[in-house]
Design a binder for these strands. Structure first.
Lengths: 237, 237
DNA sequence: CAGTGGTCTAGACCACCCA
DNA sequence: GGGTGGTCTAGACCACTGT
């Protein structure tokens, strides 16, 4: 079955991607142009493009066109190195936008943390960029008693976990992580400027301190081609 | 844009999925049947099906049809609980097929473990099933000096990590994990009986013992809708 | 063999982005 | 307003699965 035309197309498109002259500014030629060049229809061409999108080689932005995807970002969700720090450490340019902050209950977070459903949280929702590409939409839910005055601080430019340690003396001892591939929900897709249903990666973290008091719960939605999760462990499993 | 017909179709199909009478044996009606029922073309209907596939709700098998996807398997790659054990613990039926074993060099594993490129490894390649659905194709590369006679043992039915501990007294102290979403390569797709380019999750692990001697490297390729990765951490990051 | 999904054609109109 | 991707139609033939 590897004689399907759209699969041979992906091979030729891969060559095209590695040719720096063919894609100026990392942008691919228009679908109609490519379809004509490869003597096929837009439907078949788009099948090939979708394949490369699944491989993480290209992505689309709104209705603007197809672009070559940059290298994945290495990300260790078990550490609290700030987003800004580790993005810069990889030679990339980070940016963060706070979309909203408020204080209200969130039953999902409450359940994960073992709290009553009407427990209010300090909620921060933000969108994060790497080299001006929005790659992550996330919400954080912090137990207010653990970090009084959190929302008045500068929670955007510094590592939140770092602040929890330094300002409130918390130790983030027990960390539980769940992650799986998903189709980005409508809201997150809109915030990231991609079509609903675009492939994504969902990461949820639940944090307790050394006395097993609930501290924080968060939900991250990443573009699937934007990151490579890494975890380093020392000690017995 | 949520007024696209294929998106409304996904809503109606989701209802259909939750109706146990509509899909006998977890199998969906034929595409032509569904297209007719929803008064659209196969192309549009398939767009809706692809959306649900991305959400992990349905999957296809060869050219046999579309099936409702079962619940995701919880999997903690940092632990050495055997596949058989944790699959059964979740009320599912595990099965493993060994596809091949041999001893030969593998530069990728050698590099990950910091060994010379011509370092030979004990190599085990296998395919694993949950409830008779092939969900994982993996290769393991063990440093022969750490586990002499490994390939003569019963490496299929017992936890490999458990054996490394009990038979060879190894402690798997330093574990490094890398994972990212991918399009399944041709070989793995064929072994899992799905189309090349189906969405998958790649997991790579590199293991050193307490003296930082290299022990093992493995590469896993999972169907993207088959699992939810979980990690539990205690102690300082 | 009949039925299934897999692939492909040759058009069309629409919604949105940018100059 | 021109160009882009997003969506959709109404067909067709092929390759494979199961009987």
């Amino acid at each position: 079955m590897s004689d399907a035309y759209y699969l041979r197309l992906t091979d030729r498109l891969r060559e095209l991607l590695s040719d720096p002259h063919a894609c100026e500014e990392g942008r691919l030629p228009a679908e109609r142009t490519l379809a004509e060049r490869f003597r096929t229809t837009r439907v078949t061409l788009r099948q090939a493009l979708a394949q490369l999108e699944g491989e993480g080689r290209i992505h689309r932005s709104n209705r603007r066109g197809w672009f070559v995807s940059p290298a994945r970002l290495d990300y260790d969700p078990t550490r609290d190195a700030g987003f800004n720090d580790y993005v810069r450490a990889q030679g990339r340019r980070p940016r963060t936008e706070v979309l909203l902050t408020d204080t209200r209950p969130y039953p999902t977070a409450a359940e994960a943390l073992g709290l009553p459903a009407d427990q209010p949280f300090c909620h921060i929702r933000r969108r994060r960029f790497v080299d001006d590409r929005a790659v992550l939409a996330e919400s954080l839910w912090v137990v207010p008693e653990r970090a009084p005055g959190l929302l008045e601080g500068d929670y955007a430019s510094h590592s939140l976990w770092g602040q929890l340690r330094s300002r409130w003396g918390l130790s983030l001892t027990h960390r539980s992580l769940r992650l799986y591939s998903e189709a980005l929900p409508e809201r997150e897709a809109a915030e990231l400027g991609v079509a609903a249903g675009t492939a994504g990666l969902s990461v949820r973290r639940t944090i307790f301190d050394e006395r097993r008091r609930p501290v924080e719960y968060d939900e991250e939605h990443w573009l699937h081609d934007a990151l490579c999760i890494t975890v380093e462990l020392d000690g017995k499993a």
